[in-house]
Design a protein around this nucleic acid. Structure first.
Lengths: 103, 103
DNA sequence: AATACAATATCGTAATGCAATATAGTATGT
DNA sequence: ACATACTATATTGCATTACGATATTGTATT
């Protein structure tokens, strides 16, 4: 499909997946990046971190900095607003995808 | 969800929907824009037309200009490559959405 | 104190997205 | 035949986002 088209089409999905994962358990950048890579999606840290910052700024995520074996990690979790947005996004995403499979 | 978040999350979906609709029948800007609006998504023409141009440039769409009652319309249809990309995108989109509904 | 390491942050540039404005082209009325 | 109106596309200037590369942070280990 072409690397560029892939990101062009799916970066929005990835943003929804941030909320999905951060709803289940705290996530941090490196780990989330690897998780994505395992599923075939690569995203630059120069893209990912600003997305986290923006989502925190918008009140969808909150962060907590933790020291794990001397390495500093910044864990993000959904706010209640983040969960609301996630629920709404899931419904809309499903509608849009279902439509793709009509007839 | 906030207008801006909505577009941020879903513009990629909309690009896939362009291929979906242009696979079924020729589409043109005004009509597609209204179709989106009916489904609750608004997209500026300053966004939409350059997307068409880019997809044509990438070989996913071809255009044909037609005169309908004195109005000039530019109809876009999928190329075979556009159809390939659509099929791949549908599968990936479905995977990503299904995952959102796991447990 | 120096080094190594995992992780986050930022920088400069390129590409996208947007609202607003301009342009195009023909049908219709006079 | 000319002016007007109408629908549609194209472009423009600015703001925001995306990206790869580089810098910074903070602690554990030596």
């Amino acid at each position: 499909m072409g690397e560029q088209t892939l990101r062009d089409f799916f970066l929005g999905f990835i943003k929804i997946h941030i909320l999905y994962h951060a709803a289940k358990e705290p996530i941090y950048g490196q780990e989330f990046s690897e998780e994505l890579k395992r599923h075939g999606y690569e995203i630059s840290f120069g893209t990912l971190y600003p997305i986290f910052h923006k989502m925190e700024e918008k009140g969808l995520l909150v962060s907590e900095t933790k020291n794990v074996n001397g390495k500093i990690r910044k864990y993000y979790t959904n706010t209640s607003r983040g969960n609301e947005v996630l629920d709404e996004a899931k419904i809309k995403a499903k509608e849009l995808v279902d439509e793709l499979f009509e007839d």
